[in-house]
Nucleic acid binder design. Structure first.
Lengths: 354, 354
DNA sequence: ACAAAGAGTGTGTCCGCACACACTATTTTT
DNA sequence: AAAAATAGTGTGTGCGGACACACTCTTTGT
């Protein structure tokens, strides 16, 4: 209704004294354009701060975008389901809006499969890649190939510093550890005497435990910085995740026999296994139990207060943003923020979503 | 690139044996259409699950959307700045994408101004209204007028149950209170003996304190439900917010003379005033201090740990979603979720954003 | 009986952009 | 010197939908 008229290609063409075809050519870097004319047009585009009309662009170009998704394989109810839900949500949303986007999913359960699947995406006609870097070595190799083949990619959940990715979307595991430490510190500060804390790394052996280690580092550094090491005794426990509750029970049983901790921090996403063990053995007083990620089983244990607090880094939103960022980069040629850090959320029974 | 062809008006027209003009008429409920034809077309639309192409729609309709924004007046750094930032962000985003949206802002500092400004939006050419209901009476009157004049509106931040709004976007203050209670309970549970808690209602007198009261109710009910009333002694303190630190200092000084609480819960967004007082008087041991909202001054006090925890309900996102929902309702004719409840976030020094 | 007023429908233009195609002027090849 | 290739540019059509306009056929009024 206002003079807020948007600048069109036509406006630029008129000002530059050429046809819209020529302007189109310089915008898309295709065909031949005389150098002085190109410069003139580029200048005018800058001057007028031309922003292409996204609606017209999408409408006119019938091309379909294909995104490659490369994530760890997972079972229902596990962590990676959450980012995947976000990815699906974003795709649905954009498809509904007239975009034509489809995904090609790849999953992996070993570094070799990871690299293999990644390389396949290069030969396939894929416009952009969203991946979670598994192990450092394979990821670097893969990313190098992406770069050489001019395939844009976005890293999700964990970062590899210095990669030429469009964006990293995820969390800072050290900060997570710090936050858990703060909670445990505050929640146990009025307990007299030395307080014992277990840090349990319950995860699939040899599988991308970088993030878990970083969490533990953050956790420890909190107590170090605050010079609280004398008030606490820590015990790091590496537990193999065989997937069965029984094995966890056994190990927890043994540990509890040696004494009752004041607090337990589980660095992975399988706190619910520990919670179930605690439910079984009923140590008294019940230790404070803190873990990660809003997966279904964890939420159930928060509801019945076996787990006291859950930390999470907007796993679902990570997936959503990854797709959205890729689309905006590919279709609008927008410049994407290099790092998109998620908020770190603290959940307890009373503020659980849904 | 795939057969993923979307259904177009033209497809419907062919199937119905009429022209696209007729289909257009039934879609938009304009002009005359023979009843049997209308029924047939509607049936086909349902059958084929026709979804209009948003890009084409926005491109073709040159109409500008005007949103009316009716919010409490605020100074920089106060709570209402946050939803406003979200609103601006959404508008920018959608304007960039070829939509033509502008806002007309109204603010109020009294119920009369509120009603007055609201009525003015009806006569002005405004397509949709985003408002925060101030006092119950005026809000109901206003909403009634909106309804009669067929102006769609969205309530933000606080709800009026049962209004014919497109959507309510906000929080559940009772849940906030419960969460704070949980925190205080957990954080003081190892303190022996009776624990004293202050609940401070620091707000502008007679101004929309419904939400604050609801928080207090939630807070109290936690302790009641858990049968913890004997372990705690509570003191509710109503403090007028004159805006000056000095007045707060005086009152806190007097209160501290009567004894040192274990925890303080400030129901409004001005915890930082209390924090500053505590910094001045340095009660020992320092009481646990919990409040609401990520406004700048509060965050500063969280950083230096004068405030221990902040609760917030995604104030900024509320504004963003309100605009987005309104646009989707008006331009895409999408059906909007009737209630969009924000997540309840717990912040402490270690997980503060930015 | 004829004009005027509807009811009901089809056609055409435009929105801003992408992209194929056609065209001219100049240079290179044979 | 004629043919062919190339640099550089303009025009036209279509994407899916909104909306103005024109048109036919029936009903109503006088």
């Amino acid at each position: 209704m206002k003079n807020g008229r948007h600048i069109r290609i036509k406006d630029i063409a008129e000002k530059a004294g050429c046809s819209i075809g020529t302007v189109d050519r310089v915008i898309h870097n295709r065909g031949k354009v005389a150098e002085p004319v190109r410069q003139r047009i580029l200048r005018i585009i800058k001057e007028l701060d031309y922003k292409p009309n996204v609606n017209a662009r999408v409408l006119a170009s019938k091309q379909a975008l294909t995104l490659g998704i490369l994530l760890p394989s997972y079972k229902k109810g596990e962590y990676w389901e959450l980012p995947c839900l976000g990815i699906s949500e974003a795709m649905e949303r954009y498809n509904e809006q007239g975009y034509n986007i489809e995904a090609r999913w790849f999953t992996y359960n070993s570094p070799e499969k990871f690299h293999q699947a990644g390389m396949k995406m290069i030969t396939d006609e894929i416009d952009g890649i969203i991946l979670n870097p598994a192990t450092y070595k394979e990821s670097v190799r893969l990313v190098r190939s992406f770069f050489q083949n001019n395939k844009p990619f976005i890293l999700i959940d964990s970062d590899i510093h210095g990669t030429p990715s469009l964006s990293f979307i995820g969390k800072d595991p050290v900060q997570s550890g710090l936050t858990v430490a703060k909670l445990i510190h505050q929640l146990t500060r009025h307990i007299t005497g030395n307080k014992s804390v277990w840090i349990i790394n319950l995860s699939i052996p040899s599988n991308q435990n970088y993030a878990l280690l970083a969490r533990e580092i953050g956790f420890m550094s909190y107590f170090a910085d605050k010079q609280l090491r004398d008030d606490y005794s820590f015990q790091s426990i590496d537990m193999d995740d065989t997937g069965t509750q029984k094995v966890v029970d056994e190990q927890i049983g043994k540990l509890l026999a040696t004494g009752n901790p004041h607090a337990i921090y589980v660095t992975g996403s399988r706190v619910h296994n520990i919670a179930d063990s605690l439910k079984k053995f009923k140590p008294d007083p019940k230790p404070l139990l803190i873990g990660h990620d809003l997966i279904h089983k964890n939420m159930e244990r928060v509801k019945d207060e076996t787990i006291d607090f859950l930390i999470e880094e907007e796993a679902r939103r990570q997936g959503y943003l990854a797709v959205e960022s890729m689309i905006r980069s590919l279709t609008y040629k927008e410049v994407i923020q290099k790092k998109q850090m998620m908020n770190l959320m603290i959940y307890t029974r009373e503020n659980l979503p849904l």
